[in-house]
Design a protein around this nucleic acid. Sequence first.
DNA 1: ACGGATAATATGTTGCAACAAAAAATCTCT
DNA 2: AGAGATTTTTTGTTGCAACATATTATCCGT
Lengths: 241, 241
Amino acid sequence: MENSPYNHEADNSEAELMPLRKQGRLGDMAYDAMKERLVRGAFEPGRKLTVRAIAEALGVSSTPARDALNRLSAEGALVYSGPKTVIVPYLTMPALKEVVAMRLALEGVASEKGAAAAPSNLPDELERTQQKINKAMEAQNFSDVLWHNKEFHFTVYRHAEMPYLLSTIESLWLRTGPSFHDLYPEFAIRKYGVHNHEVVIESLRDRDPEGVRRAFENDIRDGYRGLKHAIASRSKTATAA
Amino acid sequence: MENSPYNHEADNSEAELMPLRKQGRLGDMAYDAMKERLVRGAFEPGRKLTVRAIAEALGVSSTPARDALNRLSAEGALVYSGPKTVIVPYLTMPALKEVVAMRLALEGVASEKGAAAAPSNLPDELERTQQKINKAMEAQNFSDVLWHNKEFHFTVYRHAEMPYLLSTIESLWLRTGPSFHDLYPEFAIRKYGVHNHEVVIESLRDRDPEGVRRAFENDIRDGYRGLKHAIASRSKTATAA
DNA sequence: ACGGATAATATGTTGCAACAAAAAATCTCT
DNA sequence: AGAGATTTTTTGTTGCAACATATTATCCGT
């Protein structure tokens, strides 16, 4: 569940859908590929996804493509808008609140346990990740911002050594990812999460797991505010469009 | 995700695997059927499950059976013991701790929110469910005890109206269910959860959501202790067997 | 133009056979 | 007898065609 088998360092943000190289189970690859694109905000909410289209785009048959879509819709990352239509979901206000409540509960645990078990070189590692975020931000490469931002969080959480917790949290990120698609410009201006991340690193250096937890919680709440406004303004223009 | 399409009232606990009647997507039905059996402790940990066996037992082709197995193993309810072997997982001590940590975090939220939004007739409803638990306990029908116990919890949680939270919690229950399989006898003696459930009902009558939360948390912790000992004694006899 | 019915198309699900590979059973040699 | 190699069987994955039906496009009447 850890990483997708693709290069997370390079800027492949423009490649919305590209064939994947064979390795292991085709279904897992298709799943990972879709997951990364979702987190990166590559798909706009409402986008329709079909088995055959994914199969062709990824260069596999319909079975693995269907496996991936099934798995994704089972965990709520995709939804049915009709009996035969899977789309990237619009994040509604109740859904956002639910995701935030769960993120606070779960990432609270993951960050505190992860911080408590963190090796001493973790702050440096995080600082490098933060630099990647900043660089991507300057370059207006928002897809990479999102990706490295996720990496920042999970680099801490991973040290909790709770794999199932991690994959559950990951599935929560899949639900908010798409909503950043229309938010790219506004997103950069807000300097998303920079301050909170600095506090994380500082608290880590102070060996203060509770401080790390609070910083991540603030980060989650800040993200909530950003998305909240985006959703509110979308639902206003939704009827007009 | 709500309910499986089977009669939760009747005692079909002996029917480990029986064909399902057609209705909706075959894959979903197979998934629900397996889920219920897992929660009921119908499968012992270590039991090997094959696509073809499930397909035949459920009277469907391999595709829906495979869908169900895939979904279950994706959420950790089943695991691969080899590249071509899915089994019902043995609950290890680290895995149990992880599940408990997550249950405390998530069911804490679900119970408190659910209690706050609960209708006034909920205590009566829960009392009826508790009676079912007691009856099943007397009848030594442990499969039903587990099922109605789950119903007790989720009856409260449902009022939180957080569907995604609910399905995440449900998937946690899938991981502990099988471990009760070998625990049936001991299980009854401990009068699992009876007191905590009474406190839940009482706190609900007092309109004390926080009390409800604490009662559920105690219930989770008590369950933890029971499973902890079972796991400890198993790992001791495991080498002998 | 516009709305509703009708036809055409596209899509998800299911079942199945082929294949490669893993697991289990059997056999052999010491 | 026991351990290791070998054969046999079992198994998951994949691709694909058929089918029913949902979705989309078209057409017609007003």
